[in-house]
């Protein structure tokens, strides 16, 4: 039983290194709905990958990137609000994904696993992939910390001071796409945004600086992922929901303990 745990645990903990700080930027930048949209497009990515016999992880990444780029492009005209545009992209992708699933004949795709995460799909190959990509995402955030922070403080102030705001916004979107692509196996499409924003939201109660909030979000994520994986295995629960419930518990404790 322990052997079953080790790979998912390592993968989950590595993932949190990226979701902690990135989740904070999603909260600060009010991008939660954007995360949902990417998750839905990731589902379509899986389906397309299977149907076209293409590498699934790469298909997810490409489709997330495509959706992020479409949104960035659509936002340049200001006639429609972002949440409307996101709703269109999000639900179109979800609808296409669900239609695609029904087209796959001998159900080689574990639909339930895609939606809520699946412990058993995480092998050592996935662990290494998730760890490397998470570290790269974290490195990108740390490296561009000042510019990204200034962007969420005030985009106009950032722009006047020479921060390439359009590029930074695109970077954030692509990082979210990458993280969703690698997190999907563990948490599943439906709850991936929760994994990003709930620990960060809880961390807000404990923090007086952006750095501390990123750190607490990582701590909360580590707690949720490790205890979630263990309880999923012990009590035979769906993995994604188990993780998210424990993340929500972390949030609740933070909300009660900290008042700043």
């Amino acid at each position: 039983m322990i052997e079953l745990l080790i790979a998912p645990l390592l993968a989950g903990m590595a993932l949190v290194l990226a979701t902690g700080p990135l989740g904070c930027f999603i909260v600060w930048g009010r991008m939660a709905y954007f995360g949902d949209t990417l998750a839905h497009s990731a589902l379509l990515g899986v389906v397309l990958g299977v149907l076209l016999q293409f590498n699934v992880a790469l298909a997810i990444l490409l489709l997330c990137a495509l959706v992020a780029l479409s949104l960035w492009w659509l936002q340049r005209s200001e006639l429609l609000a972002s949440d409307t545009l996101l709703g269109i992209l999000s639900h179109s992708c979800l609808a296409l994904g669900l239609v695609g699933i029904s087209l796959i004949e001998n159900s080689r795709v574990n639909v339930f696993g895609l939606l809520v995460g699946d412990l058993l799909t995480v092998g050592w190959g996935e662990v290494i992939l998730i760890a490397v990509i998470s570290l790269l995402v974290q490195a990108a955030i740390v490296f561009k910390w000042r510019s990204l922070l200034l962007l969420v403080v005030d985009p106009e102030l950032a722009k006047v001071e020479g921060v390439p705001t359009a590029a930074m916004r695109l970077l954030l979107m692509l990082l979210i796409a990458v993280v969703i692509a690698i997190a999907m196996q563990i948490v599943g499409v439906l709850l991936i945004t929760a994994m990003l924003i709930i620990p960060a939201a809880g961390a807000r109660y404990l923090s007086t600086s952006p750095e501390r909030m990123a750190l607490w979000a990582t701590v909360g994520g580590l707690f949720a992922v490790s205890s979630g994986i263990m309880s999923a295995l012990l009590f035979d629960l769906p993995l994604g929901p188990a993780i998210v419930i424990l993340a929500a518990l972390f949030f609740l404790v933070c909300a009660c303990v900290g008042e700043k």
Binding site: V27, W28, V153, D154, L157, A201, R204, S207, P210, K260
Partner: peptide, 21 residues
């Protein structure tokens, strides 16, 4: 250019002190 907007667009979800800003 030094620019001061009328207000900042960030909300309360971003914890940041005057000194850190």
């Amino acid at each position: 250019i030094g620019y001061t907007p009328q207000r900042l667009s960030s909300d309360k979800s971003l914890p940041i002190t005057v000194d850190r800003f």
